[in-house]
Amino acid sequence: MSFFLETLLGGLMSGMLYSLVALGFVLIYKASGVFNFAQGAMVLFAALSMARFSEWIPQWLGMDNLFMANLLAFAISVVVMFTVAWLVERLVLRHLVNQEGATLLMATLGIAYFLDGVGQTIFGSDIYKIDVGMPKEPVMMLENIFEGGILINKEDFVAAFISALLVVALSIFFQKTATGRALRAVADDHQAAQSIGIPLDRIWVIVWCVAGITALVAGIIWGSKLGAQFSLSTVALRALPVVILGGLTSVPGAIIGGLIIGVGEKISEVYLGPMVGGGIEIWFAYMLALMFLLFRPQGLFGEKIIDRV
């Protein structure tokens, strides 16, 4: 029982991180109809930027304060991600307005390759450390309820907490601020939003910026766990089934989908994996999403698509 709970909790926590990446997908899709395949490349780019600047800044300034170095590196990385967002709008999206979804998808694939290349050219392609003081030691919980209690990684716990915080902050941003309302208007109908004077290009830059921030947070959390390295860019591929499950247009969908996939992956790996040779977690999520697609193409919370002639 306690083993099952440990698995479940582990799944929920990695699910929270998937939700974070999925949120980046959903934000951009809602506001611009672009399925952003480059989200993973953005996570890598942000993580590399964070790792390298926090390493370089103490060297440049000759100081020895980890906290200050991290803070500065974070600030610079935010600027870097904003620049990326601005350039993406300027150089790519602006020229592809009103194109089909598939074309835009391929364009973001191009952006992903470009970012991977640039990131590794500038920042290098080794594994870099991100040390933001995440607690590393595991803790025992609920010892009085179960025999032996359950073992929880404190780092996962903090990460899940930060993700949840960001999700709440973004929801408030979307529901309560003027910019958030404009974003939702654009999401509903591009042309109508434009006709009442909402500047599309600015909105797009903003969503890409917000997606950049979620990428940065995801990059830092993942980077501090696994190191900032190329494999981070595959995180997006693992978060893809999440948005399919949750529905491309739904923020709560991204969160719940993330949790379902996180738990599903862990449980299938632990209980099903040994029977078939292990390593099934990556395709299991996809198969789950695929089965789901066949019965409910719009996802759990997505809007139903009606064809008009």
């Binding site: 150089l91 790519v92 020229h95 592809l96 194109q99 074309t103 391929m106 364009a107 694939l109 191009g110 952006i111 992903a112 390759y113 470009f114 970012l115 991977d116 290349g117 640039v118 590794q120 050219t121 392609s125």
Partner: peptide
């Protein structure tokens, strides 16, 4: 060699975008 491979994927990425925009 590493740099060449990074420049390579960079150029691929840029070319994809270029072709999609300019000559689909």
């Amino acid at each position: 060699i590493a740099l060449v491979s990074h420049v390579e994927i960079m150029i691929f990425g840029a070319l994809i975008i270029f072709f999609l925009i300019v000559e689909p």
